[in-house]
């Protein structure tokens, strides 16, 4: 599929560092987008990377920041998990395509010892450590439970055993990390996968070009 060239206007795509990157690159390659070799080097200090497409630049940022860069129009395209989209709920973002990568789930977990006399239907107030305070509050509020959130940026599994909180809300893929820390998944909040995100203004002002990229990536996903 041909993408209409913009009048020399640069196009920026934000990709998340870490886990998802390894799955995203083959997908992008199938869509005809190949970054310069330095992109694959996790230790590179460089933050912007050229691609085989002259006006398209990749930036590599933290997964939560992808949504922010795209929402504010600093990048026109990006790849972000729907966990991040649910947390920020940015009105300036569209997520037109499920890329089917980075699959995991967002779940509530608690220590094994707690599970046996715990009845989730009787919770009235919980203290939860999470990277996702908004989703957590919304999730518990919808059930009429007051959630007091402790925002952490990592090593959540430590929090219950050290008495920081009773429960955690975190991404779970295999469950191995939970098990290794004596935690059990008790509730599933959402299935997570990575989405192609698009800045709203970019889609309105460069419709043919942006739609072209959505279609290219759709074809790459369908062909997988």
């Amino acid at each position: 599929m041909e993408v209409a060239p913009a009048a020399n206007e640069p196009l920026i795509m934000a990709l998340p560092k870490g886990r998802i990157l390894g799955e995203a690159l083959p997908l992008l390659a199938r869509a005809g987008l190949v970054p310069e070799p330095a992109f694959a080097d996790e230790d590179a200090r460089q933050l912007r990377f050229a691609t085989n497409i002259a006006h398209l630049t990749l930036i590599r940022v933290r997964s939560f920041d992808v949504a922010t860069f795209v929402a504010f129009g600093a990048a026109q395209l990006g790849i972000a998990g729907n966990d991040v989209l649910m947390e920020f709920n940015y009105a300036e973002l569209y997520a037109p395509l499920d890329l089917g990568i980075g699959r995991c789930r967002l779940a509530v977990a608690e220590p094994e010892a707690m599970v046996k006399d715990d009845d989730p239907s009787r919770w009235s107030h919980v203290r939860v450590a999470t990277k996702y305070p908004e989703i957590t509050r919304r999730h518990f509020a919808a059930r009429g439970v007051q959630a007091e959130c402790v925002k952490l940026n990592g090593a959540l599994e430590l929090a219950p055993s050290l008495g920081l909180c009773g429960r955690i809300v975190d991404l779970v893929s295999s469950g191995a990390t939970l098990r290794a820390n004596g935690l059990v998944e008790v509730e599933r909040i959402a299935e997570v996968s990575s989405r192609l995100v698009v800045n709203r203004t970019a889609l309105k002002t460069r419709p043919a070009e942006i739609a072209g990229w959505i279609e290219r990536l759709r074809a790459a996903v369908d062909g997988a």
Binding site: N82, L85, A91, L93, Y94, A95, P96, L97, D98, S193, R195, V198, L203, P207, A208, A211
Partner: peptide
Amino acid sequence: DLKDSAAVAAAGGPAAAILAGLIRATGP
């Protein structure tokens, strides 16, 4: 609102196919 075609397919019921078409039709 998110133009999230995956979620539209899941929540759309009888309208899912048409709505997916609408999302893709957005543009010029």
